[in-house]
Design a protein around this nucleic acid. Sequence first.
RNA 1: GUCCGGAUAGUGUAGAGGCCUAUCAUGAAGCCCUGUCGAGGCUUCGACCCGGGUUCGAAUCCCGGUCCGGGCGCCA
Length: 434
Amino acid sequence: MILRTHYSGDIHPELDGQEVTLAGWAHEIRDLGGICFLVLRDREGLAQVTMVAKRTEKPLLESVRQLSRESVIRVVGSVKAEPKAPRGYEIIPISLEVLGRADSPLPLDPTGKVDAELDTRLDSRFMDIRRPGSLAVFRIESAVLQSLRQTFYDHGFLEVITPKIVATATEGGTALFPISYFEREAFLNQSPQLYKQMLMSAGMDRVFEIGPIFRAEEHDTRRHLNEAISVDMEMSFADHNDVMDVLERAMVEAYRFVQENCKRDLDVLHLDLVVPKTPFRKVTYSEALDLAKEAGKPTMEWGDDIDTETERALGSIIGEHYFLTDWPSSIKPYYSQPYEDRPDVSKAFDLMHPSMELASGAQRVHDPEQLVSRIKDQGLDPDGFEFYLKAFRYGMPPHAGWGLGLGRVVTTMLGLENIRDAVIFPRDRRRLVP
RNA sequence: GUCCGGAUAGUGUAGAGGCCUAUCAUGAAGCCCUGUCGAGGCUUCGACCCGGGUUCGAAUCCCGGUCCGGGCGCCA
């Protein structure tokens, strides 16, 4: 049996006289003596329960006065339209039931009157998310996921789930977390890349996956985590420009969807969301170096990966989402396809927000011999990729794809200071609990 | 990994060698209060990260450790 008939957000003054049952947390109790206000909070907002001492049964009033903040309660009462009350209504209680008593003191203040540091909030994340501002972020994240999935379905993609426990490194470069797998060593997957590509050989044509990826890098910044949610796609019979189009569309749709469906959450966060303008500007790697030089950042050589300072400089010059294209082949993974006429440049791209990289993708190498030679060129052993290479030898279509960091999308969309704000239970260099 | 900064009641803070029996807010406990909505008023409770050192005297200075924040590096 569902213990409530309404969320607080469902109630309005026109329900005057109707009996309702609310369930939630005792957000605040303000006892003025002759009149006592109890503010109940649920996922959809706040509702004021009002008790005039003279007109309220003693035991009911007593139970409210003994309530600890943040206890879980269920209130049966009648709606009363009341101009003096917040949102024009209040609940006159008939009965109150304590479903879960809260200890005191609380690990942080869920009303937000007193701030808490990120570390304190993460230690007690369950309590932090009771704060409307934290909840709003994750409601928006849910909307972003809903919108991204819808965009994929609209473009004829199939949702897939690939293994997170793998035998070997996906692509070299990044460090992996080793795990014990019965009598063998295995690893947590750093990317669904190889599996997505094999599904192109399988003829699934267009696939996407939204799931965790694991990087054992000791990075320690506001935009990196060791467990991240990657929004990944792969598309057959398409090139890098085609998948950039899908990415641009997915981003813009996500912004629109949030703007349309998360008005209250955006209000809570005091945000006026602006949908990025399309088309996103495309800046080649070489142009980016020139821009950086003009801005007085001449230290980078062609072939260097773009460092943080240059990335920031570009961000402030360009000032909106942009694609960074035509990367040197040497600094992109082996599966990125070089241009036929200038093999030192690849059909690889990053989607950039002015403050950080959001996604990276490419048209892929689909010729098995070229792939083997690219693997060797990057100092990797093709034998370790046999399960992957096999899929290329029996009819692999041309394909392209990308991976997008969900946490970074939400962080940049909402202007959050730290990616940990956008992840419910973040995993970083130090944090493994909760 | 490295550089810089930090650690004071449950939470957020003040504090610059004696003014500290440590500030303020929030909270908790109690009392007053019939329209609060960051309610108000009064009383009470609750803290200097750990270890060493300097000094007559250390929250404050020094050393080591632990933890935290930020920058960079590393990072499809």
